[in-house]
């Protein structure tokens, strides 16, 4: 799933889709943690997943706010259009 998320990130040009792919990747990472925790029979994996979750939430907030700004500024959601830091 991580690989799928990575692929989606690289392929899609729309920033919304890129954010989505990021979520997929985070989810996949969390899944890995949980499985590890279950393997060793400890609660730590779940703890880490909690943190990942909260971090994902925070990131989604800020990310979407940025998406709004990008839309207002560049009138499009094309990721390549925001390449002003080129160089």
């Amino acid at each position: 799933m991580f690989a799928l998320g990575l692929t989606g990130l690289l392929v899609r040009r729309n920033v919304i889709f890129m954010l989505m792919s990021l979520e997929i990747m985070l989810n996949a990472a969390g899944l890995a943690f949980i499985v590890a925790g279950a393997r060793w029979g400890q609660a730590d994996g779940q703890i880490v997943f909690l943190f990942i979750l909260s971090m994902a939430a925070a990131e989604v907030c800020v990310g979407l706010a940025l998406v709004l700004q990008i839309y207002r500024r560049f009138k499009s959601l094309d990721a390549d259009a925001v390449s002003e830091m080129r160089g």
Binding site: L6, L9, L10, M18, A79, D80, S83, G87
Partner: peptide, 17 residues
């Protein structure tokens, strides 16, 4: 090297990957 600094996010992500 200059061509890699094109400001494109997906390119950078690919680089990270």
């Amino acid at each position: 090297v200059r061509r890699t600094e094109n400001g494109r996010m997906r390119w950078y992500a690919a680089g990270i990957a």
